[in-house]
Write a protein that binds this DNA or RNA. Sequence first.
DNA 1: GTGAAAGCGCTAACAG
DNA 2: CTGTTAGCGCTTTCAC
Lengths: 338, 338
Amino acid sequence: MEKLTIREIAKMAGVSPTTVSFVINGKAGIREETRAKVADVIARTHFRPSMNSRRLFFRKSYNITLAVRKSSSPFDNLFYFEVAKGLIEKSRAYGYNVVFTDLSVEDGRLVLPEIIKSRDTDGIIFLQSADQAILGEIASLGIPCVLVDPHVKPQGIPCVFADYRQAAFTAVQYLLERGHRAIAFIGSGNSPDLYMQCFSGYKAALDSCQAAIPTSWIQFCAEDEAAACACMEKILAQSPAPSAVFCSGDILAIGAIGCAKNRGLRVPEDLSFTAIDDILLSRYFEPKLTTVRIDKNQMGQQAMDLLAAMIDGQPADSVQVESGCIVERDTVRRLGPV
Amino acid sequence: MEKLTIREIAKMAGVSPTTVSFVINGKAGIREETRAKVADVIARTHFRPSMNSRRLFFRKSYNITLAVRKSSSPFDNLFYFEVAKGLIEKSRAYGYNVVFTDLSVEDGRLVLPEIIKSRDTDGIIFLQSADQAILGEIASLGIPCVLVDPHVKPQGIPCVFADYRQAAFTAVQYLLERGHRAIAFIGSGNSPDLYMQCFSGYKAALDSCQAAIPTSWIQFCAEDEAAACACMEKILAQSPAPSAVFCSGDILAIGAIGCAKNRGLRVPEDLSFTAIDDILLSRYFEPKLTTVRIDKNQMGQQAMDLLAAMIDGQPADSVQVESGCIVERDTVRRLGPV
DNA sequence: GTGAAAGCGCTAACAG
DNA sequence: CTGTTAGCGCTTTCAC
């Protein structure tokens, strides 16, 4: 079988290459009869125009790059993968290939992969991390770029955010509706933006019911599972004890619940928990965690929409995805009327 | 700033485009002096030759496609991601972009993504699944293809296998070394190839110590967590009871341990367990699972090596990655001397 | 409405 | 040892 090119197709259909090109690209000005004839040949031969040629002509790579940090935890990986799925689904419609790449480290500096340095990508999506130096380098390369769920808010780069304020509000509201008033807070001050959103949601829910809480119930040094456990310890060290705890992330709740268990408390009989994220583990942890789902798939989809718009030169603003969906499991007990 | 092309660089360096091209591609026949001059200009300008042009010239896309099934469990995702990491690391050295894609379903038939149909990829990597029709379609497209950890062994397509026989042998040997002789087997007959490997490793380890076991200890209907639980039930229904159980997958062990727990048995005090995989959950499950690690990262790397060889037209054979690394955790008890 | 011709940026014969 | 030239396969003016 010979190499199938647009010329071959033209020959087979008895027309010129131009005509074939017009048919392929749906341009006007072709007689319906000719169009059908050409379309028929294309269908029969399964011909596809060479992407490589179009790339050269349009000076587009039709690649978008998903940049992942090198050493990330399995949980990060899960996060990435869900976002990636959303991205991939959408990319199909836009005709982009989604290329995975990781930022490697040389001499302690992050270094961009070749696909970016050689501008072989039409756009870039970063997940969570957002090294300022890297961002600057990309800006100087002139490649559109969007950040997904950044831990720290950068200036001048469109982002896809989850609405952590709404998520926190929902998680706490859920507790209130089940009769809880004594609700503690465990979060991480490591990402101040994130912290502020979560705390603000927590506060908004509590404000509405005029609940007073001791300041020892507000813990913001939980940057990981172990630290969350320590936070829980501090909360339980004083009386009164809360009837419920809201944690700004599932992994923190898992740490905090571990602490409660160690002290002989039963969850949810003695203490209820809600959190934010819905990571894989939450379904397998004992007891199964009640949490507000962050829709990572949708974040991926939004990122694709945003990036595609930027590539087309349209002005783009950050977007926030709805984050008010609670998934009810086994860590919340309904309290009798107070 | 003007568009940087090889002509521009040539002009700046006062040479011809050919010379620049030769320098870039490390061809012989350039005076060192000229070479240095050109190299200097290239370094200063951060020039990279347009991938799009090279693609057209070489008729190569420099893409390899990682095909993922559409609806897969989070655990599959984790598997994919680890393989992908290995793949990505290696792809850098070969100069390939790793493009993620999923097989979508139309009218109940799997359909190949555009990147494959339009031959915009130099090779394809499939994970686990291996629909025969799809494979045939790809073969007719003439695109090199490798399978990673296929559940069913296809003919004529190079694969990257884990050595499940070795893994099973290692897992059972580990139990033997700790004094266990009464060791039951739980596996899944759903993937006969896989089953045979696991059982053969289990048998080989046991053969060497002449241990006799009742046939009820051999269970092969555990296609998932719940089924594994049922298998465990059957094993425990008769006496004597084994002192240890080997499961051909972590998720099966988790199901089986659940059954043992329900019956009031303590793990590992009353019953020990080993398995194969080392999935994320095994570290978080209570008790933490002792298991033989399958190195998915390495499988990804091997897949890249294999695929690259095939793309270069070299003959390629399936490879098997070493799979004898046990990760010791909390599900095995050492028995006193018999 | 359709065809001939130029060019996207690079590479590699082929001259000089 | 270096420069000129002709494509790789497509798209798109610009004539006809």
